[in-house]
């Protein structure tokens, strides 16, 4: 084998592995996993950024309101009666009070509509809707004496 032939073979081998040849090579069915992972990460990050920008503009002090979305100032505030007393001073935390826990002297006078009553924590006295009964009435029932719901153990019938 001559030196010239050796150089030709080396050039041929180099040409077979050139980028041009690689482009023309048929695409394989499997992509590079690293490249796929990068694209997925980029897509998720973009989705998150768009969603954050679109739905939480108020959280970002410097972010301008996106076009087409209402800001807090755009939402019409409900009318507040000027004479309505505030139960809590501005800035104070609203608290929930149970009526029955209030001292009598502190209970405001309530004018309830006809048929309404103040519920009590006592389940026996509290009005219930659709309360489960131990028995099945066949006609409209009325209670003639309310008592602790004991389940009757004995049932009398003809036998």
């Amino acid at each position: 084998m001559t030196a010239n032939a050796t150089t030709k073979d080396a050039t041929k081998a180099k040409a077979m592995t050139s980028p041009l040849d690689r482009k023309k090579a048929p695409a394989t069915a499997r992509q590079d996993p690293g490249e796929l992972r990068w694209w997925i990460t980029a897509g998720l990050a973009t989705t998150y950024l768009v969603a954050w920008w679109a739905f939480a503009p108020a959280q970002v002090s410097d972010a301008p309101a996106p076009t087409g979305l209402a800001t807090e100032a755009d939402v019409t505030a409900p009318p507040v009666a000027a004479a309505a007393p505030r139960s809590t001073p501005p800035g104070a935390t609203n608290v929930v009070l149970w009526w029955h826990e209030l001292p009598l002297a502190l209970r405001p006078k309530l004018e309830l509509p006809a048929g309404w009553q103040v519920a009590t924590p006592d389940r026996r006295a509290a009005p219930t809707i659709g309360a489960q009964r131990a028995w099945r009435p066949t006609a409209a029932y009325r209670t003639v004496a309310q008592e602790r719901r004991r389940r009757p153990r004995v049932r009398t019938r003809s036998s």
Partner: peptide, 27 residues
């Protein structure tokens, strides 16, 4: 009825009277 052991003052036993028109009912 000992089920009334915590005592609401009523005592006794509760007895249901069956509805003769409906064995599952109570009059």
């Amino acid at each position: 009825d000992p089920a009334d052991g915590d005592g609401d003052g009523s005592g006794g036993w509760l007895v249901e009277v069956e509805d003769p028109r409906d064995p599952d009912g109570t009059v």
